[in-house]
Design a protein around this nucleic acid. Sequence first.
DNA 1: TGCCATAGTTACCGTTTAGTAACCGTGATG
DNA 2: CATCACGGTTACTAAACGGTAACTATGGCA
Lengths: 146, 146
Amino acid sequence: MSVDFTKHAEVQRKLAQEEKLDPRVQGLVNEVIARVADKWTMTILDVLAEHGELRFTRLSKLVTGISQKMLTQTLREMEREGLVIRTVHPVVPPRVEYRLTDLGLGLGAAFCGVWVWAEQNLARIEEARTEFDQRAADAQRAYPRT
Amino acid sequence: MSVDFTKHAEVQRKLAQEEKLDPRVQGLVNEVIARVADKWTMTILDVLAEHGELRFTRLSKLVTGISQKMLTQTLREMEREGLVIRTVHPVVPPRVEYRLTDLGLGLGAAFCGVWVWAEQNLARIEEARTEFDQRAADAQRAYPRT
DNA sequence: TGCCATAGTTACCGTTTAGTAACCGTGATG
DNA sequence: CATCACGGTTACTAAACGGTAACTATGGCA
């Protein structure tokens, strides 16, 4: 329940510093993050960080819920961004292996913090949600819509 | 160009550990991250971390490019997740202030790593992209579509 | 009387995204 | 000759996203 204001102040300083460094960069960084921080990309990053090198079918089983199409698509994008390396062995049936580049591993490490945050604060978020919804329902009862 | 394998191994251990902790959690965490890691949410988080407390109109000017609708919408979602606090002063014209909760500040801190990563690796990503596109163009020239 | 500012909400509509399911090539196998 | 495995690609469709513009409420002010 207590807050580490030292840490927060530090974060604020960091964020402010980056703003000052280069105003143009902000947009680019934001774009990169937006591109990289999507649902499937993060899950694939995680799975590849965990298992090292994986073939397409194996990957599709480990990334629960993804469709073949989205897996292909996301992997291509990640390859384009330089996050994964795609190795095709010219045999039949085809054998294609995917693994993270240094860049990909670095991103995995960076995301680790968010991952940990999410894990640690799951309960708090769910709590906040039900509380919010409760307040919304109360307001609804007080001022019902037409 | 060199790789810090120590760090990477560490990351892999961390990620693996978390997997083991609770398989159900993975889905939940992923959902939370997916919800939180969108373009506007991150930008707003950033701006609020930098400026502390802001009114609606001021916020809309600092978050360049956002429409009134999306700002309202995103702020409501963030409030629901417990990331921001919305304070309404019952005066006229209305005065509404937004600021981050501890949870929001914590998320900002966690994302800081990703932010730094993106900033540091911008060049490498752009490089990877042009390289990829070049290879794609070459392949295209070698095997033109019908 | 009419207009201002603030912080929204709502209706409408085009764009983007993601999922389903079918199809493709190839060589080995039955 | 037909089927399977593997790693895709493609067409179709439903849902979500996000932008514009108009509308809301309220008290103060000219």
